[in-house]
Amino acid sequence: MKIDWFTVIAQVLNFLILVWLLKKFLYKPILNAVNEREKKINDELREADAQKAAAEKEQDTFKNKNADFESKKSALLDKALADANIEKRQLITAARAAAKAIGSNMVKAFKKQQAQDKKEFTQNTQEQVFIITRKALKDIASVSIEKQTTVTFIKHLKVLSTKEKQEFLDAFKTNENAILVKSAFNLIAKQKKEITDAINELLNSKIVLQFKTVPELISGIELSTDGYKMAWSFSEYLNALQKKISTEIKEKDLPQTEKTTHAST
């Protein structure tokens, strides 16, 4: 166990050479690479931090913008709602007014239609009654309705009550105008003479009558001067009939309406 001094010196030299070589080929390159990588990573981290800061700044900006947008949106929404409510009220008011006007028009139209229907109904009824009567008279008594109408009118003149007779005399005596005789059909000369005779007898004078055919009278004769009118026609009967029917309908409707009212209450 001895120390070989040549080996010692050689090993010292070997070691120093190894230190130099490793420093050159190992430590320096490795440490440089490590430092460079650290620097690179630090740079990247710094850059990432900067980007993060920028992103946060941008995020804050967007947040603020969003908040601003939200508040504006809310305000606009509120305003829109208020406007919509006002518009809604206006529209409802207008619609109500329009509905009321339409309803009123409808009622008017309905009433007009009702009156028209009533008139038509009356006319038809009169015509039908006249046709039926004419046929009935012809079938039963072989008498024309025109002739019988004239007879009835003259008979009616003859059986006037005292009061009616007086009113008739007052009206025709004070009147200088010609007396007008309207009839629903054309009177023949005989009938005209009979009527003229009957009136002259009633007035105890000789007057000239004017004759005129008016189909609306429906088988009737009407005697008129200023302020007075005396007539006989089917219209009188029909009006009476109509009045009676109306009264009966009303009487029938009244209990039903009362029932409905009770039921609804």
Binding site: N14, L18, L21, L22, F25, L26, P29, E36, R37, K40
Partner: peptide, 19 residues
Amino acid sequence: MLLLIVSAKLITRKLKTNI
């Protein structure tokens, strides 16, 4: 010595500074 230096040289020949 040879082993150490050759190894060091071989490995450090293609050093990378990437991650």
